[in-house]
C-alpha cells in the first residue's frame, strides 16, 4: 500500500508521501488525495480514465498530474480508487518533443499540452485512473480537496526511494 501522512498547515492541508521510484511516488500522491477525500474501500473500479500531462520539472509535473485527477472529481464527478502512472525519461528527445494529447477546455489545454509552448516541457506522464462516478448515497465525503498549490512543493530522492510534499487548498 502506498504511504502518506498529513502535516499541519494553518489554512489548508499538507501531504507528505513516499514511493519506491518516481512513478510509485506519484501513485502515492494520487492515493493520498482520494483517500483524504472519501472512504476509498467504498469506491469500485468500474471505469478507467487515461490522460497525459507534461511539466517543466518533476514538481510541475506532479502539480499538473494532481490537477487532472482533481478535475476528474471536481469537474466530472469521478472518484479515483487507483491510479497507475508511467513517467517519461527526462532527457529522452522523443518524450520532449512529443505533443501531449489535447484535454477538454482551453485553459486546460494550455496547462497540459506541450504544443508550441516557448519552453518545451521536460517531463511527461501517462496515467490510468480507475474508479467510478461519485454517488452521494454510497460515497461518504470526508474533506473536499479543492486545489493543489506550488507552495512548499518538494520532491526529492532519499536512500530508501522518493519523498514528496504538497500543500492543498481545502
Amino acid at each position: 500500500m502506498p504511504r502518506y501522512e498529513v502535516f499541519d498547515h494553518t489554512a489548508d492541508l499538507g501531504i507528505l508521501f513516499e514511493g519506491r521510484d518516481l512513478a510509485d511516488l506519484f501513485e502515492s500522491a494520487a492515493f493520498a488525495v482520494f483517500d483524504l477525500m472519501t472512504e476509498l474501500p467504498a469506491v469500485e473500479e468500474r471505469r478507467t480514465h487515461r490522460f497525459v500531462v507534461t511539466g517543466g520539472d518533476r514538481e510541475d509535473l506532479l502539480v499538473n498530474f494532481l490537477r487532472e485527477l482533481l478535475y476528474l472529481f471536481n469537474g466530472r464527478g469521478f472518484l479515483v480508487r487507483r491510479c497507475a502512472v508511467r513517467i517519461g525519461d527526462a532527457g529522452a528527445p522523443e518524450t520532449r518533443s512529443r505533443p501531449a494529447p489535447v484535454a477538454a477546455g482551453r485553459g486546460a489545454v494550455e496547462a497540459v499540452s506541450a504544443g508550441s509552448a516557448p519552453v518545451p516541457p521536460q517531463w511527461r506522464l501517462e496515467a490510468e485512473a480507475a474508479g467510478e462516478p461519485f454517488a452521494p448515497d454510497r460515497h461518504r465525503m470526508k474533506t473536499e480537496i479543492k486545489a493543489v498549490t506550488y507552495h512548499g512543493l518538494e520532491i526529492r530522492e532519499t536512500p530508501a526511494g522518493w519523498r514528496g510534499r504538497i500543500v492543498c487548498d481545502v
Partner: peptide, 10 residues
C-alpha cells in the same frame, strides 16, 4: 488554476 498553470509555465 488555469491561469496559475499558464503563468508558472511562462
Amino acid at each position: 488554476d488555469d491561469y496559475l498553470a499558464r503563468m508558472v509555465k511562462h
